[in-house]
Write a protein that binds this DNA or RNA. Structure first.
Length: 324
DNA sequence: CTGATTACCTGAATGC
DNA sequence: TGCATTCAGGTAATCA
C-alpha cells in the first residue's frame, strides 16, 4: 500500500526520468481514474498537451508535477490510492509496441493501464508515463496552485515558500517536510478527543501515514493505538514523530514496502522493507522486543476503523480508561 | 466537533 | 468445480 516512503520512491524515480520533459499526448484508457478532474477527459487532455514538466513535488501521499504551458504553471496531481502505480516505459517497453505481441511481463500492468502520457525528454528520447491502478481508488487531476494558508512558525515572520494544489491544501505537512512542526501537532492533538491511531491516519493533522506505518511507529514509540490524544504528553508525541521519521527514512532506503506486485517503483521494481516490519502482519508471532526481555508476548491483531491494528500488549499497554 | 458508516473498486483467498 | 462471501484499505461524503 503506498504510504509516504512508497510515494517518495516514485517521486524520485519520476524526477530522474521525466523532469524537463514535454507531454506530447495524453491518452485516457479509463475515465474513472479522472473522477476528481471535474472538467472531464477532453479538458484534461487539452490542458496537458504541449506542457513541460518543470518540477515534481509531494506532500504526504499526494504527488504532483508542475506543468508549464501557455497559461502559466498548473499542477498535475496524482494520488496512488490503494494500488496505483506510476511507471516509466522506454524503448520496446512502450505501449505502442505492445499491440501485436505484448511482453508477457507487462500483461498485468497493461490490464489495469488507465492513463498514458507520451513524453519527450530533453535529450529527445520518447518515453511513456503509465498510470496503472487495479482498484481505482487513486487517480489524477489538474489543479491550480494556491499559497498555503500556513501558520507562522514561532519566531519567524515569513511563511515558508509553498505553492500547493488547491485540492491538497487540507493535507497537513508530513514528518519529512522541513517545515513540519512537532509542537504544532502536539497542541492540535491535545485539543482533540480521539484515539492516537485515528489521529495519525487523519491526513489533516499529519500526512503520509497509513495503516502499516502507523502500527510500526506506535510499536516503536511504545504507545497503544487507543491512547487518547488529549492526554498525551509532549514527549510521547515527540517519540511518535521521531519513530515515524526514523521508519520512513529506513523504508525509503529500502525502496518502500511491497507485499505483492501492487507497489513498485517507476521501473517496476518492488521495495524490500516488508521484511523489516516489526508488528504489521505478524499476528501470533513473538514480539522481538519482549522475546529479548524473556517475556515472549505474541503480536495481537484487532479490527479497528475497518482495518487491522497490530500491537504488542506488553510494549504497548492498553489504556485503562477513557482518560488515559 | 466527533465518530460511525458508506461508497468507491478488483482480485485473491476462503467457505460451503 | 462453482458460486458466494470476505478481506485488503485511502479518501471523502454523509449522517447522527
Amino acid at each position: 500500500m503506498p504510504e509516504l516512503p512508497e510515494v517518495e520512491v516514485v517521486r524520485l524515480g519520476l524526477r530522474d526520468w521525466v523532469m524537463g520533459a514535454t507531454i506530447t499526448e495524453a491518452q485516457i484508457l479509463d475515465p474513472r481514474s479522472l473522477r476528481r478532474h471535474l472538467a472531464g477527459v477532453q479538458d484534461f487532455q487539452d490542458q496537458l498537451t504541449g506542457t513541460r514538466i518543470t518540477n515534481i513535488s509531494r506532500r504526504g501521499k499526494y504527488l504532483w508535477f508542475t506543468v508549464v504551458g501557455q497559461h502559466g504553471p498548473t499542477a498535475l496531481v496524482a494520488h496512488l490510492g490503494m494500488s496505483g502505480q506510476l511507471l516509466v516505459k522506454s524503448g520496446q517497453q512502450r505501449y505502442q509496441h505492445q499491440h501485436s505481441a505484448p511482453d508477457p511481463a507487462l500483461i498485468p500492468q497493461l490490464k489495469h493501464l488507465k492513463i498514458l502520457l507520451n513524453c519527450k525528454r530533453e535529450n529527445g528520447e520518447e518515453v511513456e508515463l503509465w498510470f496503472v491502478d487495479q482498484r481505482i481508488f487513486g487517480g489524477m487531476f489538474i489543479d491550480t496552485f494556491v499559497q498555503t494558508s500556513d501558520w507562522l512558525p514561532a519566531g519567524q515572520s515569513e511563511v515558508p515558500e509553498s505553492l500547493i494544489p488547491a485540492q491538497v491544501t487540507h493535507i497537513a505537512r508530513d514528518p519529512l517536510d522541513e517545515h513540519f512542526d512537532g509542537e504544532e501537532l502536539f497542541q492540535r492533538l491535545r485539543k482533540k478527543n480521539t484515539g492516537l491511531k485515528r489521529a495519525l491516519l487523519d491526513q489533516s493533522l499529519i500526512s503520509g501515514v497509513g495503516n502499516i506505518y502507523a502500527d510500526e511507529a506506535l510499536y516503536e514509540a511504545g504507545l497503544h493505538y487507543q491512547r487518547r490524544t488529549a492526554h498525551l504528553t509532549r514527549s510521547e508525541v515527540q517519540r511518535t514523530v521521531a519513530a515515524l521519521r526514523e521508519i520512513f527514512v529506513r523504508s525509503l532506503a529500502a525502496g518502500g514496502t511491497s507485499f505483492d506486485a501492487l507497489y513498485v517503483d517507476v521501473s517496476g521494481t518492488p521495495g524490500y522493507f516488508a521484511r523489516a516490519l516489526e508488528v504489521y502482519g505478524r499476528e501470533n508471532q513473538p514480539c522481538r522486543r519482549c522475546a529479548a526481555a524473556g517475556t515472549q508476548q505474541l503480536i495481537r491483531r484487532e479490527t479497528f476503523m475497518n482495518r487491522s491494528s497490530y500491537y504488542c500488549a506488553t510494549c504497548q499497554p492498553r489504556p485503562r480508561n477513557r482518560h488515559s
